[in-house]
Every structure is written in C-alpha cells, then in structure tokens.
Design a protein around this nucleic acid. Sequence first.
DNA 1: ACAATTTCTTTACGTGCGTAAAATTTTTCC
DNA 2: GGAAAAATTTTACGCACGTAAAGAAATTGT
Lengths: 358, 358
Amino acid sequence: MALISGDCGINKIGSDAMSVTKMRNMEELAKVSGISRPTLSKYFYNPESVRKTTRGKIESALERFDYSPNLFAINQNRKRNKTIGILVPYLADPFFAEIVRKIERCCIDAGYWPIVFSAHGQKNLENDALKTLAALRPAGALIAPLGRHSDIESVTVFTNEIPTVLFDSNINVGSAFVGLNNSQSIDLMVDYLCRTGEPPCFFEMPPVNPNAQIRRKSYISSMERLGLDPDIIRVEGSNWEFERIGFEQGLRLFSERKLETDTILCSNDRLAIGLIAAAYQKGLRVGTGVGCALRIAGHDDHPWSQFTCPSLTTISQDYSAIAERSVETLFDLIEDGQSSKQCQEILFDGYLVVRSSA
Amino acid sequence: MALISGDCGINKIGSDAMSVTKMRNMEELAKVSGISRPTLSKYFYNPESVRKTTRGKIESALERFDYSPNLFAINQNRKRNKTIGILVPYLADPFFAEIVRKIERCCIDAGYWPIVFSAHGQKNLENDALKTLAALRPAGALIAPLGRHSDIESVTVFTNEIPTVLFDSNINVGSAFVGLNNSQSIDLMVDYLCRTGEPPCFFEMPPVNPNAQIRRKSYISSMERLGLDPDIIRVEGSNWEFERIGFEQGLRLFSERKLETDTILCSNDRLAIGLIAAAYQKGLRVGTGVGCALRIAGHDDHPWSQFTCPSLTTISQDYSAIAERSVETLFDLIEDGQSSKQCQEILFDGYLVVRSSA
DNA sequence: ACAATTTCTTTACGTGCGTAAAATTTTTCC
DNA sequence: GGAAAAATTTTACGCACGTAAAGAAATTGT
C-alpha cells in the first residue's frame, strides 16, 4: 500500500533534495519515466503488482522526480476506496486517544487510510462529523458514539449508508458493537472490595452514555447478589469534565460527611482522579493501610491511573483487544457487503488491577 | 460553508427519514430539483450566493432527497481547496489534544476542513503523516513537530510545497512559528520559587524537542542572574511517556537522597505528575505548608495539573491565544501566497499559576 | 413599461486519477 | 526456438465535481 508508507513521493537524498523537479500528475511522471500511466497506477496501488524491472525503473524515476499521487483523486475514483472514518466522543480523553492510536495502526497496517474525528463531547459536533464522514464515502467507519446525547437518527442514517462498527458505547445501531463486559467487570470489583473491606457505595458518572447506566445497574445487582444494600451517589452535570465533577462533588460529599461506608467505587477513573484530589484537599488519606480513611476504586485503567496519589485500583480494559477486534469486525463487514445479521455484540472481560487506593 | 455545518445532506425529519431517496450525485439532484448543476455547485460552496427563492427550492429538495456533495471530488477540483492539515507529535498528550481542539474550531469557523494527524512520538510516523498530508495538497498546514527526532529535511520539503505554520516546538523551518516565550516563563517561575523558598533544581525532560533545551538554558541563566548555582537533574529515555519517566527517576532520586534543595522545577507538568507520584510513594509530603518535605513546580498548565495531590503550581500557556494566532498567521500566509519574510516568530508570555505544590 | 442589472441555464471543458479492453511486447517454459 | 503465459502499452471512457462563457430569464430601478 503506497498511500502512507513506502519510499514513493518525497525524495530523501541529502544534498539534491531541492533539485528534484516536481511532477504535477501521473501523466508527467509517465512521460519522464517511460512507463505508461496505467502501469504507474498499478504500481501506486501495490508496488508488488508490477514486474521487478518495471518497479526498478519507476523507483529510479521517483528519485529523480518528486511525485506523490493526489489522495483526493485516488479516493474519488477507486471503486472500493480505502478510507476508514473514526469518530470518538472526546479525543482529549486519554482513553480514547489511546484506543484511537491503536485503531489507526490496525487500519494503516491493513492498507487503509484512517481519518479521525472527535465530537468534543457535543451533539452538534458529532452530527457534523457524521455528515463530513458520510461525504467522504469511506469504506467503513468505527464509531464510539456520545451515547445518550447522540442523535440516534443521524447515526442510524449514517450506518445505513456506511458499514459501521460501534465501540465503547452501545446505542444499538449499526451491525456490530465491540466493548467491555461492564456487568462482569463491576461484579469483579464489587466482589473484591467486599472481600477486602467495607462494601462500596457507587459514585456515579454523569449519564452521558449507556455505560453509565449499565455500570450502575451492575453495581446494584452485584450488591443484591451479596445480600447488601446498594448505595448510589448521584452526580450533577452532563459534560465530559469528569475530573472536575469528581473533585467538586467529592468536596461536597466529604464536607457533608454523610458517607455510610469508607469505600467508594467510581464509575470511571477520571471521576476517581477528581475524587482523590478532593480527598487529599480535605485531608482524608486514601488507601488500604493503617491511618487511611477512605478506599477509592476506579474503572477503565486510564493511562494515568497509575500515577495518582495513591495509585488507583481499577478495572483494566484491554485496549489492544478492543481496537483489533473492532477493526477486524469492520473488515469482515466490508467484505460481506454488510449482509450479516443485525447488531452482533462482542464483549471483552475486564480484569482487576489492584494498586494502592483500594 | 456547507462542508460540515448546515442542513444540507442528512435529512432529519423524524418519521420519514428512511423514505428520502438518496441522490448519487449533483446531476441527479439537479434533475429532481429543477435547478441547474452549476447553480447547485454555487449553493454548496456558499448558500448565501444564490437568490433566496432559488435557495428555498434547493433546500426543499434537500428535504425530500438525501444528498451531500462528495468531499473528494470537491477537493480535487477546487482551484484553492479548503483543507487544512494539522500534525502534532502526540495526540494522547492532553496538551496537544486540547490545542488541536481549539485549532480545529478556528478552521471550521473560517470555512476550512481540518484533518488531524499524530506522529505518536515516532519519527517514521511523522514522516508518513507529512507524506499523506502533502498528498492531500492542502491549502495550508499547522505543524507541531516532534522536534529533535523530526526529519528536518522531510519537514523542509513539505514546507516548500505547502504554506505551513509551526507551533509549540520551533525547528526553524517554514514561514512562521507560534509558541510560548520559554525564557520569560521559566524566569517567572524561578523568580517566584526563589522568592518564596529555597532556589529550585531543574528536573529536565527528555530532550525530545527544542523546548527542552530552551527551558534548561533559561533555567541556568535565571539562576545565574540571581547569583545562584544552577543544579540540573538529567533524565534518561527519549520517549514521550513523561509521567513514567518522572515517576521512575523520582523514585531513584528520592532513594539516593542526593537532593541539595527541597524545591524541584520540572521541565513540564507531565514530568511533575510522575514526580509527585514518586514522592507520595516515598512518603514525602509535597507542598508549602508545615510538614512538607518538598516543593514541586511544573510547566504548561496541563489540563489535569489542577487535580494532582497536591494541585500543581505551574506556568500557564494560553492555549486559545496560541491556537487562534497560529490559524490567523496561516491564513495570512495562504492569502499572501507565502511571499512574506522568512520564519517570523510569535511568542506568547506564560503566566504563573500558584496552586499548592510550590 | 422599459432598459439595466442580476441571476440562472446551457454548454462545454478541465481535474487527476481508476479501470477496462484490445493490441503489443516481454518473459517463461518445455 | 517456438508457443503459451504474463506483463505492458495504447486507447478510451468514467467519476463527481469545479469553472468559464454565452445566452436566456428574472429582478430591479425609474
């Protein structure tokens, strides 16, 4: 695949880098290289597809003349184009930054061209991104929807046109979903916390997406299964500034001192990061050792949860597995012409990462 | 600008969203709407540019028929296209995630189409991104280079073809640079720390980019100006996992107890986050109050530096100003046909954010 | 109601590439 | 060395749009 990798295009010979003349299009390159344009076209699609001697001629021409095919022209004309759209709700969230990074790599390795969009937590931006994405007529799309704030109809319209795999947050649209088995993971954590200390209350994230609901429900059923009373701390706000929410709600919570347990299970790590900051400010020591007033657990294994004070006990999502499986599923969908059954759901188990906070 | 915003394209009327028939191209829409294709083309470039009655007809057709112009075709054919390439070294770094977010917004508001790339900290990926970007023949590009690991020649070749504004890290290529006045900001911090306690040593970031060098030099001259001995703690590693580096080097540092001052100025916030975690683990209390063993200061006002324990005293970069000015400068460049003088440098002053860590 | 102006339609060509089919050349294989 | 197979060239068309020019239609101002 010559789109991104490979040596074609930019000449990198030291001193005469500036002396290579620029080719305006493939036609010009055909003239100066003595190779016909259709053969060049084949070469740029896949260098291996032309005879070795021809390849040699082309590549030596590429050293003397600066040329790279126009991406817009390529993608307009290919029958099945190689663009993959990626849309996440909030790219500044390291969870998404990280998983996008892995997805991008999978796409590039498979010879596709990933284009990344972020909704920045806003519904209208998500819709805009969907429109732009549709206007690109990509081969497929990987979408982590905003969730509750998604315009379901826009997403549906999109998935009707473009083969789409949803990930992270399932809004039951499109042909497949890849995500975490929240009920398993929450169960695992509740179990661990009850085994090692007081049963946890549940510090809820703003209900921005279905995961919020599923995690709350899982917490409740896990507690009931153990014969315990669920205790849920609801939070206000519906934006994506989870650390701030955790921090501010935490300050209030600790001031009012109305906690009935010393153990708090947070709906996600970013919330826990804010909560730990609030506890620190209030002089409450977090952890499992002597002199600790509070245990705090998170969920997601956020890239920085190992650097909180104390380091955060949490549930790890297998980023690589989710990324790889999402991409694989999408490629299957693309090949099948999305004829397959409706909304296949693929869930990965989370695993417990015990650190110092609980 | 109809590229992203606006109502054209996806029909959002509730019940009959599925009943609208899809137009394959502008020609088809012209037939069913009774408006000629060139006029439609004008409309999609700028809806205001056609008469109101015509606009009404088009928009009512758009409600009955699903159509949005093919982005690849548009960008292939426009004389001056509306694509803006954005390239950052590491998108999972919230600093870049945040600034990209702001840059994107500026571009969209100006009617451009931003496409984001990340080098993920790797030289070869940066080169790949530059090639892909060049193949898009964008109107312009905003690039925060990797820095020391950038392939200067590739970047030079790129900037010779595409109007480019560099930001964050200046490798003296292209027509303009927008960034922070590091020597001013470090000076400000050194001054503050000396005024309020022991003079700081300098915890260096891996020399991944020129900022690392500039900040170190600034620290040295600030200290010398105050008649003090600079004390630099060098770190190993050259990757972008700054928290980990700060944490591991911090553990070693605190074990060996060879610090000659209780005040550490970190080259950036991510390093400081790791360092604070190390101090916590070693039982060293960070802050300015009684019983504190250590003061730690950062640099950049990382989005999460307010949630460290204790919250981080740091230098704030004005993200919005840098983003806006970069985009403005680029647009000037695009208009001028990049005829202007060589490598104009625009620096913003940082300002001190005093929190609890120092 | 008329000319002047603006907007629209018609027609036609350009963009840079993909792609298909037939003709030609080169390579492979026995 | 000749036939079969593979690769390449030639020719031609398609894609979905931008854009330009000339003429027709609608609008404006008086």
